[in-house]
Design a protein around this nucleic acid. Structure first.
Lengths: 340, 340
DNA sequence: GTGAAAGCGCTAACAT
DNA sequence: ATGTTAGCGCTTTCAC
């Protein structure tokens, strides 16, 4: 091999090569591959043999250009960090494979930033797009919409008639969790420690928390809900502040996710608080480690894989029929009680 | 919008549409987009205006067919489960974006299984491929090779002259960890609890463990190394067995990854063993939770993001020059001592 | 049942 | 500086 080979495409075997060697036309070779029923068994056999001999592989790009189907769907995520995103991705990937589709990913999906030259995604080569939107991001959605690809939005509630939607029913799980805390503690000792205030899930969880706790106390104080980000550092910081004010002992906390909960648990342990006697805590996401840490963390299960799979499923339907009626899927969350 | 619109491609704006409206040829429009320097400013301005008005977006597939460059690279992973894979993916995605490339993922990448009709990946549309191989998988590698795409193999050691290779230096970190355990315990009380025995990383970690421990005892007993899988359940099961035989107290364990370590820690806690006095333990991967759990888990850091990024980097180089010399990158691991 | 031929939307010589 | 034209590799009428 020389240092500068021909570009791959020049050297690759094409339909024409197979046709020539098999003594048929390219059309026949194409039929052997795509509609075997239409070709005489003997011919098909001969063509197949040549295909094997030459190691022919159809060029997916040329095929896509003809059929205007690439069998690729995009998935745009704000980040690929942590179990939340990777499990959604995993569910989407599995479902895509079931339908013979491939997944093109775009992490840190942001549109219209700086003077970017390229768009967030190569829309024109996608058959469809799943967009995970966890915080207001009109630019990305707008960019995606005007590209014309079928879209399914995950997490953000979008009412556009041509966009399907997969949502988490955060309210139910959060309400269960709040009720669980209220079973051990007075409402004025309950706290919600969320992720970013703009985050849709955090918003919904906080709101369910306020509603349920509000039924047992006159008013839910402002300091009973706090917002930061989905990190253990934030959980630890919040807990430290509470400990400094002598207010963590005897409290019940609903954390915005398990990471925050782990941070709080860690700070509580350092302060010598016993779980769950001195501090009751419930997380969100039911991550793998929730059941491994000690004490095992009670957590609200979110069906992440199913979320990803449902988004792909809706998309597949819309790709088949772009004008179809908007559909919305909302998946339930539920409290898993452990020992925290 | 009617229920059955034209397929997207029919309705999409093409170069020809722009050319017509701008009163120029398609070549000029193409130049405005790809080589702006070659076109008169006034013309360029006029064309740009029409592009905006019509909302023209170049068709990535047609472009790829012409240039035989899709700007897409594939990444094949055995699974997308857990921090190990998702962090590698994250690193690869970030690096790909730096180079203007997109990532197409194939989870559960296995080749030649059953009578699958389609290959693991749409090789013909990829500019290159990163394959993460953690256990012997000749079929996948063979399939990928004969597709002709530039390849970079991650984790498995591959000496083919046309395939780049990114490796983890497991030996250093594992040796450090073993030495760390030997600092507290006699060599005959040290154990290695790995993932699958066929797993390359587990293999190398076990071997470094045997070598280092072997320097302090006559022979390393067979029961001092055990193999299962990368799960906390396996760690817990192993620990339970040891506890039943009364052999866990006073032992030192090097776990194949942090999950296994967490499982062992959990069983040890249930058995009333104090960490690190009754049981010293070191994990692998330095996962986010290693520093959050209590006691904080000592762990060998593996530069996962850098691994993914390095693979993409090598691939980019080989795409630019397919005949270039094979390159191998080996990234270091190092022990992070915490309190376990 | 098979072949000829017309493109899919674009880039890149080659002309002018 | 711009236009004309020949494909990239494939699918798909339309003839035969």
């Amino acid at each position: 091999m020389s240092r500068h080979d021909q570009p791959r495409s020049r050297s690759a075997v094409s339909l024409a090569d197979v046709a020539r060697d098999a003594g048929v036309s390219v059309a026949t070779v194409s039929r052997v591959i795509n509609t075997p029923g239409l070709v005489a068994p003997a011919t098909a056999e001969r063509v197949q043999k040549v295909i094997r001999e030459l190691g022919y592989q159809p060029n997916a790009i040329a095929r896509a250009l003809m059929t205007s189907r690439s069998d690729i769907i995009g998935i745009a995520l704000p980040d690929i960090h942590g179990e939340f995103y990777s499990e959604i991705l995993r569910g989407a990937d599995a479902e895509a494979r079931r339908h013979g589709l491939r997944l093109l990913i775009a992490g840190e999906a942001r549109a219209g930033e700086d003077n970017r030259t390229q768009t967030t995604l190569p829309y024109s080569l996608l058959d469809g797009l799943v967009v995970l939107i966890t915080e207001p991001n009109d630019l990305l959605l707008q960019e995606a919409r005007q590209s014309g690809v079928p879209i399914c939005v995950l997490d953000a509630e979008v009412k556009q008639p041509d966009i399907d939607n997969v949502l988490v029913d955060n309210a139910t799980g959060a309400a269960e969790a709040a009720a669980h805390l209220l079973g051990r503690l007075p409402g004025d000792r309950c706290y919600f420690v969320g992720g970013a205030e703009a985050n849709f899930d955090t918003k919904q969880r906080a709101s369910a928390f306020r509603r349920v706790v509000g039924e047992s106390v006159r008013t839910v104080r402002a300091d009973q809900t706090a917002f930061g980000d989905y990190s253990s550092e934030w959980g630890r910081r919040w807990a430290s502040g509470m400990i400094a004010k002598g207010r963590l002992r005897g409290a019940g906390v609903l954390a915005g996710n398990d990471e925050i909960a782990f941070g709080i648990l860690s700070a509580a342990r350092d302060a010598g608080l016993a779980i769950p006697d001195d501090l009751a805590i419930v997380g969100f996401d039911n991550s793998r480690l929730a059941s491994i840490v000690h004490p095992a963390l009670s957590s609200v299960h979110i069906p992440l894989r199913e979320l990803g799979a449902a988004a792909v499923e809706l998309l597949v339907r819309r790709i088949a029929d772009p004008g179809c009626e908007r559909r919305e899927v909302r998946l339930a969350s539920r409290l898993i009680v452990r020992s925290s």
